[in-house]
């Protein structure tokens, strides 16, 4: 599955800075356990997919994995051995912009030990520091 938007308003985007912590998408909402980012960064569609594939190898059939982020941002680059100028490069890949505290993946239907093992496998595919968090009690 290739993760990228179906329709976009603009093909290319500016890089932008990632400031502050996540104020939304920072709680476990769909599963029992979540993988939370501890650093800001870009997660490419390829890395997200690699995480999903590595998790699906260890997950049971009755468990469910949810990906909470989506690569909305295109990253462009210039071809090698090209002189500077002549405009912005073509979009090469798509990334999800992640702030500290953002929930990346969620799992339901398995116990904590298995969730820890699965998230450990995913964490190896991530370019940032992550940790396992449990769903909070409702009030």
């Amino acid at each position: 599955m290739r993760l990228m938007p179906k329709r976009v308003k603009y093909r290319k985007s500016q890089r932008q800075k990632i400031k502050g912590n996540a104020t939304r998408c920072n709680t476990v909402a769909f599963g029992e356990f979540g993988l939370q980012s501890l650093e800001p960064g870009w997660i490419t569609a390829q890395q997200l997919e690699a995480g999903r594939v590595s998790a699906s190898q260890s997950l049971l059939r009755e468990s469910k994995l949810t990906i909470r982020v989506f690569p909305h941002k295109s990253v462009s680059s210039k071809p090698i051995e090209t002189r500077m100028g002549k405009g912005k490069g073509e979009p090469e890949f798509w990334v999800a912009v992640v702030k500290p505290g953002t929930m990346l993946y969620e799992i339901s239907g398995i116990n904590e030990e298995m969730a820890r093992q699965t998230f450990n496998r995913i964490a190896h595919k991530m370019p940032i520091k992550v940790r396992l968090v449990q769903r909070r009690r409702v009030l």
Binding site: M1, R2, M4, P5, K6, R7, V8, K9, Y10, R11, R61
Partner: peptide, 20 residues
């Protein structure tokens, strides 16, 4: 019942997003 996911075709892999 568990739903099996469709395999992604090559066309879909090479597709570019549509510009609005």
């Amino acid at each position: 019942q568990a739903v099996e996911k469709k395999a992604v075709t090559e066309e879909e892999l090479l597709a570019e997003p549509e510009v609005i």
